[in-house]
Simulated assay, not measured.
Amino acid sequence: MQTANSFISAFARLGDFLRQFPEGEADGEGEASAQLSELNHTHKDAFAEIIETEHIFNPWFTKDSVLRALSGIAQMLKPEVLRQWLAPYDLTPPPARLVRTVGLVMAGNIPLVGFHDLLCVLASGHRVLAKLSSKDDRLIKKVAEILSDIDPALGGHIELTDETLKGVDAVIATGSNNSARYFEYYFRNMPHIIRKNRNGIAVLTGEESEDELYRLGEDIFTYFGMGCRNVTKIFIPDSYDLTKLLGVLDRFSHLNQHHKYGNNVDYYRTLYLMNQAPILDNWVLLLKEESAIASPVGVVFYERYSEIGQVQEQLDLHKEEIQCIVSNLTEISGAIAPGETQQPMPWDYADGVDTLEFLKELV
């Protein structure tokens, strides 16, 4: 039976292994260092090769994007972070007869996007049956293999498949608004969490420093803007000069050299110009005035406001479309600072639904 301490120990070792790729191999000694050396002997070269070649299988998964994802997961897997996350739940491993099989339908929009769901299911003591996305199957398979090597008991609770989920007791499915309707129907007779499209938004005051605007750029451009926590819409004061923001975001101009991203920007620039839609353009990002929350890759929508109450009304109206909010305004409940959208902790649950509490209630 898996205990909280053994769970934390296993995932902390996984975190140490993953951390060395974005941060470099740390000097160390003792048992932890010996354990990492053992993992490296078996897995490091193969994992490094996956990182280097992932862009061949999915052009959006550049080396920089994969390393960014690994860095975020490694931060999440620090022992003190895991203890802080699990402490409020008073988790007791369920007896064998109450262990459930939880189906995971994983997305493939950013590298290892389904990892947190796998982490939650294993923390709850249940079994994972995960249907992988064809866009992101190599990384998660290797991570599961490494975890199984670290702790065979945990590995025995993981099954990965490319087939339709069958024989599951509950489901956590992530997809588009269209696929969510299918999931809601198909899994209607069992406990489920169904996630739809969501995006990040930012509320600016005009008082942000150049450094804060640059960090907002990271919230926009990381993973080419394809994550549910990427900022796709900004609210700005009526008098806000967007040329200042575009000037700072010029620092991300290298992204235009990525053929798929650059093609996306070119496509929407052409489309908007043909439709005579006003846009601002710095050749790596298009800004378009629009009331919608979700924008295409390479485009950020903006909307002006005269008082913050107007923004709050829009946030309430679109709350089912918003994953996170970036702002320095204290009036905006739950807002985070610029640059933090892609650094979620284990307790930052997608769509605000407590995944671990949901899993606890399956027993």
Rank of each mutant, 00 (worst) to 15 (best):
E303S: 08
V311H: 01
V326E: 02
C324N: 11
D316C: 09
Y267Q: 05
G309K: 04
A277G: 00
A294Y: 00
A277I: 15
K288C: 11
D281F: 06
S333N: 13
G298Y: 05
L271D: 07
Q276E: 15
D266E: 15
Q312V: 05
E340L: 14
L287K: 00
L286F: 08
A277F: 04
L315A: 06
I322M: 05
P338R: 10
Q310G: 05
I325K: 07
E313C: 04
S306M: 01
I308P: 00
A292E: 11
S295C: 04
P296V: 03
A294M: 11
A294P: 00
F301R: 00
E290S: 01
V311I: 12
F301V: 00
E290Y: 03
N282S: 12
R269K: 14
K319N: 14
G339D: 05
G334I: 13
E303M: 08
C324Y: 04
I332C: 05
E313N: 12
P338H: 06
E313Y: 01
Y268M: 11
I293K: 07
E321S: 09
V300N: 02
G339P: 09
Q310E: 15
V300C: 09
D266L: 15
V297M: 11
I293S: 02
V297N: 03
C324M: 02
S327H: 04
V299Q: 02
V300H: 01
N275W: 12
Y268S: 07
L285C: 11
M274K: 09
L285S: 06
A337D: 03
L273Q: 15
P338G: 02
P296M: 06
A277P: 00
T330N: 14
W283H: 13
I336Q: 09
L286R: 01
D266F: 13
I279H: 08
A292R: 12
G309H: 04
H318M: 02
Q310Y: 04
P338V: 11
A335S: 15
V297Y: 02
Q314V: 04
G298P: 10
Y268C: 06
S333A: 15
E303C: 03
S306K: 11
K288V: 15
L285G: 06
G339H: 12
P296F: 07
Q312E: 14
S295T: 06
G334V: 07
A335K: 11
L273W: 05
P338E: 03
Q312S: 01
L271C: 08
L315K: 01
E313V: 08
E321T: 06
L287C: 04
E289Y: 03
N282Q: 10
L285M: 14
L271Q: 11
Q314N: 07
G334C: 13
E290T: 00
V326G: 06
K288Q: 14
I279F: 13
M274N: 14
D281M: 05
S291K: 10
L329T: 04
S291T: 12
D281V: 06
